[in-house]
Every structure is written in C-alpha cells, then in structure tokens.
Design a binder for these strands. Structure first.
Lengths: 206, 206
DNA sequence: TTCTGTGAAAACCTTCACAGCT
DNA sequence: AGCTGTGAAGGTTTTCACAGAA
C-alpha cells in the first residue's frame, strides 16, 4: 500500500472524513459505522470502506470504527500531525480576507507571514500577520522551511509570481487567480477559481 | 449528443478553455491548435479534442480552431450568454471580500444583493451591494428569478441556511463552509473548502 | 504534411456481492 | 445478527492510434 496507488480522490475524501470525525469527537461519540460516517461525508458506505481499506484494517467487524483511533490515523496518513507553516502572497482584498479567516488554524495550518509588492503595506500587520516586501520571500522561505503558499495576486501577475515562488523553493501553491499556472514537476498546484465554480454551477442548475 | 452524456469534468474544462480563448481574443489571435490551447489549459491535446468533439466538429483539420467561433460556441454551450443574477448569503469576512472581488462580473455573473442575519448590517451597502434582512430572501428570490447563491455563513449555520435557501427555491449553491451540505435532488452544490484544499496540497507536497 | 475527429483500448474509480470477524 | 474487508464486476474518463479533411 504505497502512497502512489491510492486514488487522488480518496485522499481528498479522507480530509472530509477527518472533519466529520472531529465533529463526532466533539460530541463525545466513540464509535461510528461506515454507514453513518459515509452519510455525513456525502458518500456511499462502500466507498468509505474502500478508501479506508487502502490503509489497512481500521475497523472492527460487527461494530464499526473507533472515532478517536480513526481520526488520529487519518490525521497521520495525511501528514497532518504537526502545524504546517504557510505564507500568503498578495495582500489585496481576498488575501486580507483569508488572513482574517480562522478556518486554517483550526485545521493545522498557520499563516506565518504575508508578502506584497506594494511598498506602502510593508511592515504593517493584517489580522496579526506581518506584511513583508516581496523580494524577501526567498530568504524567508529558506529560513523558515516554508513549503506552501496561498497565492492571491491579480491574474496578470500570477504566473510571474509563481515562477519566483518555485525558484524560492516552494513545493505547493494554493492558487486563487483565474488562470492555469504552469509549474515544473514536483510542484503541486490546487486552484480555487471562484468564477469557474459559478459557471459550472450555472450549467448544472437546469 | 445530449447534456447527460457529456462527462462532468469535460464541462468543467470547457470553462477553462473558454478563459484561455478569451485571452487569445484579447491578443487578436485568430486561430489556435488543440496542442497550443491544451497547453494553456493544462490538459493533453487529445483530451481537449475529445471534449470539444462531444459538441460536434468545431475545428478545421490541418489548421486548428477559430478562436472567435470556438469561444462563442463554448459560451453558448455553457449557457453563458446572458448575465446571471446571484445573491450572497452571509456578509462576514469572506462574504464582503467576495463582494469586492470583481472577477464574477467579468465572467457574466452579477451579485445583485446580499443577506445577513445581523440586524445592524441591514440597509447598508458593501461594495455597492445592499445587505438585506435574512427573512426577505424567499420573496427576493421569487421576485428576481434568482437561482444561484454564494453561501458564506459560519459552519454551524450552513446546513440550516441551506435548507431555507432550498425552500426559497434556490437551485444552485456555491458553498464556502467547511461542511458537506445535504440537499435534495435537483439542487446542485459546489463546495470551496479552503482548509481542505490546503490539507490536500500538504499531502501531495512530498 | 498538418492537425482534427473518433472508435477502440487502457486506466481509473465506484459499486456489488459476499466472505470473514465479533 | 451486525458490520467491516475485499476480489470482482461495472462504469466512467483518459489516452492511443490512426483515419480523414484541408
């Protein structure tokens, strides 16, 4: 069972299961069946079992899954045990809104710094996060072992900035610009394209 | 070639192609090969051709595709010809940031109103969009023929509000809460889960 | 020759059916 | 009995290989 043979989509769903398990933990529920957990996660029970089976036998037949054990196991499998430092590049509208958003911390990610090209922002803080000069990124990334970036710059700048980030040693980019970033192998990009999601919705809503 | 047999993912990619074509149009490029367009969209040429082939013969063999014609065709296929009214529910951090974000308009969507539970916000405007009382949604939706919602309320409220929206006749929800919404058949949900995207990235970044 | 269109093959992912613990 | 684990079947999406038009 190596990392390679687990479907991409299964990994994605694992995060969802993890969330649902956290909710169950908060309600002091100790055991859950694949049926109940699958329902909460919006998938079919067999799929949930299959996904978990990639990692071994995690449940107890006739009983179900232990909530705590399973939550911890998935957390480990996702490499989510320790806090991951993240930087944000582009402290505009969306960027500062994301700095204010507390959802990341709760899930184990900390935005430790922001970067912007606009000199007037340098040294200032937004939601407790200091905004640095853009050209300091490379040094900062190296010194702090940063691997992940949230990219919220205007479309026109996105590819150029992405190139700089790759050069600085960044391995993963969460891209909010409505463009397809070209990056070398070994660098991962997930794009959140708001207009595209709307467009997609409008197609399927009749 | 009915709507039903075209892969979901192909529809999604169509939006990407559309974007790339718009960029080409702005640069006054008249013709593009599947190879070039696929590269820009981050897919393989064969996949692009297959996707387009679902809709008929759109290119010219030996030559490529006409940028204008193809852009217009895809726009039509996506039902993107006329402006779609959208409302935003939950005028908090993320909500107001999205109101400020101009990317929607450019792609043919207009946020015509915002709604919030917080009475102190009622009647105020954020980025030119008026914030209404939450209980006015149903009436507003009916009167304005609104089918789509951007949902940016806190997690705890998300499912409850979604239920209200469905009752008000909403057909599509772009959900930003980190939870899986349960909705009846006929209602479409696309979720943008920021922490989940980060988690996913962190797994694939080594 | 160049580049699209497309049936067939391959890869991938989901679901089924039931074996196997508790 | 109740519920998980899993090989096999089924379905969907991607890629290949090449036919066909400009």
């Amino acid at each position: 069972m190596t990392k390679e043979e687990i479907p991409r989509k299964a990994i994605y769903r694992l995060s969802i299961y993890h969330r649902c398990l956290q909710a169950l933990e908060e309600n002091s529920i100790e055991t859950v069946s694949s049926k109940a957990l699958a329902r909460a996660a919006g998938v079919k029970p067999t799929q949930l079992r299959k996904d978990l089976a990639y990692f071994g036998q995690l449940g107890t037949r006739g009983l179900g899954y232990n909530v705590n054990t399973l939550a911890e196991f998935i957390g480990d499998a996702l490499g989510r045990t320790k806090l991951q430092p993240v930087i944000l590049v582009g402290a505009g509208n969306l960027g500062t809104a994301l700095l204010r958003y507390r959802g990341f911390n709760k899930e184990g990610f900390e935005i430790i710094a922001a970067f912007d090209r606009n000199e007037s922002k340098w040294g200032k803080k937004a939601s407790g996060v200091e905004i640095h000069a853009f050209h300091e990124i490379k040094k900062f990334v190296e010194e702090n072992g940063v691997r992940m970036v949230i990219l919220t710059v205007p479309v026109e700048e996105a590819q150029g900035v992405a190139n700089d980030l790759v050069r600085a040693g960044i391995q993963a980019i969460l891209n909010f610009s409505p463009t397809v970033l070209q990056v070398p192998d070994g660098v991962v990009v997930n794009s959140v394209d708001l207009a595209l999601e709307l467009e997609n919705l409008s197609y399927f809503a009749r």
